[in-house]
Amino acid sequence: MSINFDLNDLKAFRAVVEQGSFRRAAEAIRITQSALSRRIEKLESALGVKLLERTTRKVALSNVGRAFLPQVERLLDDLDLALLSVGDGGALRTGTLTIACVPSAAYYFMPHAIRAFHGQYPNVRISLLDASANEVSAAVASGEADFGVSFTGNLAPEIEFSPLLEERYVIACRQDHPLARQAEVTWAEAYRHDYISLGKASGNRLVLDRALAGMVVQKQSICEAQHVTTLLGLIEAGLGIAAVPSIAMPLGTHPILAQVALVEPQVTRQMGVLKRRGRTLTPAALEFERLIRLLPGTLPGH
């Protein structure tokens, strides 16, 4: 067989699979849609097979394409790693790195990793998708994100979870709040104060409801929000306290916010890195993962 295609054709094929359409794939690899179509046609012609089934509504892999995809991904990922081992690795790391992250980790935790990464690899642009746990999982599964940072839950079968840290829930309050002077507080005591709760659509709310199923709370929350980051803004405004994961709190001293350990019971969640099974991370993604794995040691209580 005469191999009449190149790496750009393979990248075009992978982009179409990841993006689910020719239009989005063309935008992702920055070529015209007609040029992308020619690359796919060239690849299919060289192989003598149909890799993609195209209809007016969607693009899907053929049976042959489904078997061919893992080999293409492995080849392209191995090439990235090989290029990294020669010459100036930093200079080779260009383009965009897309990371999906739950808002509680995106607010204070992730900026430290982005700052460290940008200092070493200024030519790589970071695209941060701050979204719910379900949306983070979906972004990684579809290939929209290179990897994700989220907590354990109902993950798709094609998602691999790698633990990053186990963190506890704490009370977030203003520094002038009476609880701020305490080393720890029980859940029952915390709920006697004005507090803000998370909505039922929140993944954190599910974790807390399961952990506190036997607790009877007499006082209702004064306000409900969907995201931990919103809770922190409401707390800063003086609307009460809230139970939040410790990763959502600022590192070091904050001019307004304080955190207090929650006990009886101590509730934790496991944060980790989400990857698509069978897919090797790009060199840039591998380096970013290394940086975020260094951060937990700087978190209070870890």
Results as ranks from 00 to 15, higher is better:
Phe5Gly: 05
Leu7Glu: 13
Asn8Ala: 01
Asn8Cys: 00
Ala12Thr: 01
Ala15Ile: 04
Gln19Val: 09
Arg24Cys: 01
Ala26Ile: 04
Thr32Met: 04
Gln33Thr: 12
Ser37Thr: 09
Arg39Ile: 07
Lys42Leu: 05
Glu44Ile: 08
Ala46Asp: 09
Val49Thr: 08
Arg54Asp: 00
Thr55Asp: 01
Thr56Ile: 06
Ala60Gln: 13
Leu61Ile: 06
Ser62Leu: 02
Asn63Phe: 03
Val64Leu: 06
Ala67Leu: 15
Arg74Ser: 13
Ala82Tyr: 10
Leu83Asn: 15
Val86Gly: 07
Gly89His: 11
Arg93Gln: 14
Leu97Trp: 02
Met110Ala: 05
Pro111Thr: 01
Ala113Cys: 02
Ala116Lys: 04
His118Ser: 14
His118Ala: 12
Gln120Leu: 09
Gln120Tyr: 00
Leu128Thr: 07
Ser132Gly: 14
Ser132Pro: 06
Ser137His: 13
Ala139Asn: 14
Ala141Arg: 03
Ala145Ser: 09
Val149His: 05
Gly153Ile: 05
Asn154Ala: 03
Glu158Ile: 05
Ser162Arg: 15
Glu167Ile: 09
Asp176Glu: 07
Pro178Arg: 04
Gln182Ser: 11
Gln182Trp: 07
His193Gln: 15
Leu198Tyr: 09
Gly199Ile: 02
Asn204Arg: 02
Asn204Asp: 13
Leu206Val: 14
Arg210Pro: 02
Ala211Ser: 11
Lys219Ile: 02
Gln220Thr: 10
Ser221Thr: 09
Glu224Pro: 08
Val228Cys: 07
Leu231Thr: 06
Leu231Val: 06
Glu236Gly: 08
Ala237Leu: 10
Ala242Leu: 07
Ile247Thr: 13
Met249His: 02
Gly252Lys: 14
Gly252His: 10
Thr253Ser: 12
Pro255Ile: 09
Gln259His: 15
Ala261Asn: 10
Leu262Trp: 08
Glu264Pro: 02
Met271Gln: 12
Val273Glu: 00
Val273Ile: 14
Arg279Met: 08
Glu289Gln: 13
Leu291Phe: 00
Leu295Cys: 00
Gly297Val: 03
Gly301Thr: 03
His302Lys: 11
